[in-house]
Amino acid sequence: MIKKYDFLLPGTSRIGVLLIHGLTGTPAEMRGVARELNQAGHTVYAVQLAGHCGSVDDLIATRWQDWYQSVINGAQKLRQQVDHLVVGGLSMGAVLALKYASDFPVDSVLVYSATFRYDGWSIPPLSRFAAPWLLPLAGCFHLGRHRLFNEKEPYGIRNESLRRRIAKSMQEGDSGVAGLPGNPWPSLSQMMALSRNVRRALPQVTAPCLVLHAENDDIAHRRNALLVRDNVSGEVALTLLKNSYHMITIDNDRTELIALTLGFIQQQSEAKNNREPAALRLHTTLSTPA
């Protein structure tokens, strides 16, 4: 069942791409990338994570396992329509994509602005260093249930006109368009638990990974990208983008991101075809409708 803000774009190739948004985010942050991938022939499904695109209460009623189950359900839906699956995500969505790739076979992984820790330059030093022990403690004792770490300038966006539009949408309260205006403490605690789980699982990721990260990410320092590069078992193509902040799927470098993504998917598809036995490739070609 497609949720209100999910969207599925059927393609003509047998490659499917599952796109996953970030914490307090929305599938809309993946729409531009999804359209370009779809125009290249791929079937694209942008999933709405459990508890998202609603109220703060909706979000804090869910745990990271619920968010991950949304990814599993989305992948199952997409696998019914394609032969090859690519999983990708932005921010926490990238962490969820890596989690899925550590548990299930995938063709490749798109890792955009991976966020294991909120340690970018816009995060106050006190929050940066206190959060790792304060939030789990608050979660254990159910403290600060309705407290938020509010979003502040520059909202992960370097493009000033786009930043103004996103800020306006957040202030108007449409979480399905721009996400929530802040991160609830309980949800951040869940995000940290997810991060710990996936960090341990990174060596189990054997699929090739495209890792894209802003060089001057305001939310998650580029060391988050290096963590992926240095710990997954699959091949890694890493690029640091020069003219964006955290939201690289919609910011100034989105054209470069899309070009790198399309090239990576094509390269991995060609490499996979070259590794297949010739008889299997012939059978696949003959059995595919024109």
Rank of each mutant, 00 (worst) to 15 (best):
A201S: 15
Y68K: 11
V228L: 05
L280W: 07
N273M: 12
A225M: 09
A167Y: 02
T62G: 00
P105F: 05
N274C: 11
A207F: 11
V71C: 08
D103L: 15
C140R: 14
D230Y: 01
D57M: 08
Y100N: 10
R163P: 06
E235Q: 12
K152S: 12
G25R: 09
L286Q: 08
E276Y: 13
Q266V: 07
R196P: 00
F141E: 04
G93E: 05
S161K: 12
H52V: 02
K3P: 00
V82S: 08
E172P: 00
L282I: 11
S161T: 15
N38L: 10
D66P: 07
I15W: 01
V82G: 08
Q267P: 00
H283T: 03
A279I: 13
G11A: 08
N197E: 14
T288P: 04
T206H: 14
G89A: 10
T249V: 03
D58H: 03
V44F: 12
D103F: 00
A130Y: 07
L137G: 05
T43R: 01
A28P: 00
I15V: 15
L78W: 10
R164C: 02
I72N: 00
Y118T: 05
Q171M: 09
L90R: 00
G234H: 10
D174M: 00
I123A: 03
T284N: 13
L148K: 06
Q69H: 13
V86M: 08
E215K: 11
T249L: 06
V86K: 10
A278G: 00
E36S: 12
V47K: 06
L262S: 09
L37M: 09
L85V: 10
M92Q: 15
G144W: 14
Y5G: 01
S127H: 06
G25Q: 10
H213D: 02
I219W: 02
Q81K: 14
P136A: 07
A50K: 03
S113G: 15
